[in-house]
Design a protein around this nucleic acid. Structure first.
Lengths: 390, 390
DNA sequence: TTGATAACTCAATTGGTTTGACTTAATCCT
DNA sequence: AGGATTAAGTCAAACCAATTGAGTTATCAA
């Protein structure tokens, strides 16, 4: 019997925290709103919303944005989020570097930094992250109290004990409770996720998935990953390792091969190297795509049917509002892929009443996952759940 | 902008309903439990649990089961669920028949019935279901007040308006709000799902998924369906049509074909018909499998790699605790399939620390979905969520 | 027998929402 | 212009349910 302790019980305080999140989330999604409007949307009484808004204004989260015009009755005083009222700190751990970012409640990027490291062992990383955090606060002029929490992106598989055999790509982190380590180092609530999940959240907080609540996100990191968002919440699977889409078989020249051997940055770089091009950075890839390098175009030709296959599977299994592709590829290339990938016809997503494309290009670039780490925290404050750790 | 109204705000009453569900759920999963134990597991105070238990005992949901022995301190008085305290009514609508079932909180089947119909149009079905409900109550001697709700299984796609093009297999139900219709007819809260989702829930409430909270369920109906359970809750996708796994391409003799053309009852029946066997019922299939009919064995040989492929995909995308296969096939055949399907090695589910098999055989038989319809309701009362309609 | 331990209860307190009566500010209608 | 209507919002009291802290009871261990 798995002794997963059940979600926490509810009491007055937790209700308040939950309802505050509801109000903030509504204002974030719908823009400046009046009390009555929020009350109707949330099922709370106007009085409750009024109390909560009073509190949020006093604490600086909301400010009065204006008044509605037109219509009968007294015009509503509308309130909007002060984006600067809260920020989130994102950390990405890679074998050769530690990246960090700060984004605010609006999803605006306030700060990014990259530090190369020779060893990513916990004892090296911990003080480094503390320094990075202090620097980030100083540079953005953010008081510590305004930091909602920290998100951490690192290669899985994650700590749910004894996943022997599969060891992490990050030396020295096997069996380490990263969440506790960073929570202690930064004195903040910490969320740990893989790159794809984090990047998926960034799209929701400030990218192309704004307004979506159930979607699938294909992330080009080194390999290829998948983030699944359901009702605004990430699916993590039973052991926290959901989204290993790189392993699934995809068609390639008449055979089936793991998707990541066909449609990943790894595969692309290998192919370019084969034709004598060393493409280390996103800028390199952009240039090579710009000049329509034959090896690049050959990779695209192979990747598109494989991605189409993956999308077909995702759509039919998951029925998302959209599938998004993003990550460490140049924007031009992602754009090209969304135009070139042929969407399967035999799909429940192929419906007439769609208002949005089935396939979208997400944020491009090497920092997506780092920004996503911070976005995890923003999303949590705006999409409350009783299971929330904060 | 999708105006999905946000989840309802929390107040004292909703908190209580939620916490009651938490207590009931704990007792259901862990067996007879003491107040303090439940308090620790749920994060509530003993006093809160005490009050809730008092209420639940007064209302007949719980009864005192005994006292713990041994250990220091005062022995805990333990409480257990009275399975008979609540029942759920399940309805399955098919083009040629209406099935119904009653199960109790323990997941025990109290009643099943099948009525052939010539037309399954709403105006015919509604009075029929009312009669079936009354008969079921009378036969099981259940007072109306003990019925927690009704679950309805019917072919999708579901009502989220205007899914033109895709029309339901059930004539006359296009654009009908089945939930409202049955809620009004039976004066009960109603949940509508597809067959695979419902059957998946039956496994959780009384079958092989007891104690699992994240798993994937492959359902053999006419075609093949998928139910995904995540943290005890069904994933429905953005438009309520998640789980259309029958459309995904699977390997068959060197080519890729839709899974349901290879590994479904439809495919099996077609193949048997091709060799002159009319297999209409599960019993027919059982006989043919018992005598190892060549057409049956050929189907199995083709279906196994295709199912293995599907399982590979599910495991790597969802990271479930287990994959379950069940539905309208004979138990012996399902058993055989779980033994014969080769589980992919390149899977995150292929871990050393597993305590449970990766692939399990679920409940077999033609009534699985009907029982699942009822199980939906039982699961809701035992796995509380703030979003709950009740 | 006594002390430690744990489960449980009682009564008061606390936190938060709802309810209902009232005020304010705009448009509509005559 | 002026009253009716409509809607937003406030105030204070009532209400609901969880927590807190002190006290009781039952068992084991020394």
């Amino acid at each position: 019997m798995s002794l997963l302790h059940s979600p926490p019980g509810s009491n007055a305080e937790r209700s308040r925290a939950y309802n505050r999140g509801l109000v903030l989330g509504h204002v974030r999604r719908a823009g400046a709103s009046g009390r009555a409007e929020i009350a109707r949307a949330s099922g709370l009484s106007t009085q409750a919303v009024s109390n909560i808004i009073g509190e949020l204004v006093a604490e600086g989260w909301l400010y009065q944005a204006g008044r509605r015009k037109g219509g009968r009755g007294q015009p509503a005083a509308t309130y909007a989020i002060d984006g600067k009222a809260g920020v989130a700190f994102g950390i990405e751990l890679r074998p050769d570097a530690v990246l960090c970012a700060v984004i605010d409640l609006d999803g605006q990027t306030l700060h990014t930094a990259r530090t190369a490291v020779s060893r990513a062992a916990p004892e090296h990383v911990k003080p480094l992250v503390q320094t990075l955090f202090d620097t980030a606060l100083a540079e953005t002029g953010t008081p510590r109290a305004r930091v909602l929490g920290a998100g951490v992106v690192m290669p899985g598989p994650f700590g749910r004990t004894g996943v022997s055999g599969l060891s992490t790509e990050l030396p020295g982190w096997d069996g380490i409770d990263a969440e506790a380590l960073f929570a202690e180092a930064l004195c903040l609530p910490v969320t740990v996720e893989n790159d794809a999940n984090a990047a998926a959240m960034f799209e929701r907080v400030s990218g192309v998935a704004t307004g979506l609540s159930s979607y699938a996100y294909l992330y080009f990191g080194t390999g290829i990953g998948l983030g699944l968002v359901s009702d605004g919440v990430l699916l993590r699977g039973a052991f926290g390792n959901a989204g290993e889409i790189g392993h699934i078989p995809a068609p390639y020249q008449g055979t089936l091969r793991p998707l990541e051997e066909i449609a990943s940055r790894m595969a692309l770089t290998a192919r370019l190297r084969g034709s004598g091009e060393a493409a280390e950075t996103v800028a390199d890839l952009e240039r090579l795509f710009g000049e329509r390098h034959p090896a690049m175009m050959a990779w695209i030709e192979g990747a598109c049917p494989a991605l189409s296959h993956a999308i077909h599977i995702l759509e039919n299994i998951y029925d998302p509002e959209a599938v998004i592709i993003g990550g460490a590829l140049p924007a031009s290339l992602l754009e090209h892929l969304t135009r070139t990938i042929e969407l399967p016809a035999a799909s429940i997503s192929n419906r007439e009443d769609r208002t949005r494309p089935r396939l979208l290009a997400g944020t491009a670039g090497r920092m997506t996952a780092t920004l996503g780490a911070a976005a995890l925290v923003i999303n949590q404050t705006l999409t409350p759940s009783l299971a929330l750790s904060t």
